[in-house]
Amino acid sequence: MLPDISRTLGGREALPALLDDIESGLSARGVPAAAIAAVSVALDEVVTNAFGHGGATTVEVAARVADGSVTVEVGDDGPAFDPTCAPEPDTGAELEHRHVGGLGIHMVMKLMDGVAYERRPGRNHLRLSKAVGL
């Protein structure tokens, strides 16, 4: 199935326009506002991490609505990193005793109904899914 929205980003500066396109595209397809917000926040975090922490030079994003869910595929050319294996942060610890980092990935895992990672030749591929009941 072809994606509803597909973009290749060469840097973080293209992210706001992509998020606008995702939000308007999902809204036009009848996706509830709460699901659009969750997908947007998760996608923002994943793409920002790919460029900022992962050192990616390009990030490809494809989104589609089918079978009652939104699926977003994110591919990047950064070093291998599987966010699904990241340790869960201790959100109950006192601030001064918390390890720095990991909250964004934790948030993505909590916002999405499914997160899957694959390393394919030279690229990270992350699939995010959110049930929307359409």
Rank of each mutant, 00 (worst) to 15 (best):
H97L: 15
T57P: 01
R123V: 15
A28G: 13
D21P: 00
H125D: 12
M109I: 03
A80M: 12
T57N: 12
E45S: 07
I5W: 01
P3E: 11
A62C: 03
V100R: 04
I22Y: 01
A131I: 13
G101W: 04
V47L: 08
R7V: 10
M112R: 02
E118I: 02
T84W: 08
V59L: 08
G101L: 12
F81R: 14
S27M: 08
P121D: 05
V65W: 01
V74D: 11
P79M: 12
G78R: 12
V132L: 06
D67A: 14
I105E: 02
V46H: 05
V47A: 07
E23A: 14
S27Y: 08
E118P: 00
K110N: 08
V70W: 04
G122A: 11
E13T: 07
G52I: 06
E23R: 13
G102M: 07
V70F: 04
H53Y: 14
S6Y: 01
F81P: 00
G68T: 03
V74F: 03
M1K: 10
L43A: 04
M109H: 12
D113T: 09
M109Y: 03
G54L: 11
A42F: 08
L9Y: 02
G92L: 13
L103P: 00
T58D: 00
R64I: 12
V115A: 09
A17H: 07
G78T: 03
G133K: 03
R119D: 00
V72K: 01
S129E: 11
H125V: 15
D44W: 14
A66G: 07
R12G: 15
D4A: 14
T57S: 13
N124H: 11
R12C: 10
A116T: 12
T71M: 13
E118T: 10
M109F: 01
R127V: 15
G102N: 06
H97E: 12
A80Y: 06
H97S: 13
K110W: 05
H97N: 10
S40Q: 10
G52M: 06
E118M: 12
V100I: 09
M109L: 15
V41K: 03
V46T: 02
V47F: 06
D82L: 08
S129C: 10
F81E: 05
A50N: 00
K110A: 12
E45M: 08
G102A: 03
A93G: 07
H106R: 05
G78Y: 07
G101K: 04
L126H: 01
V72R: 01
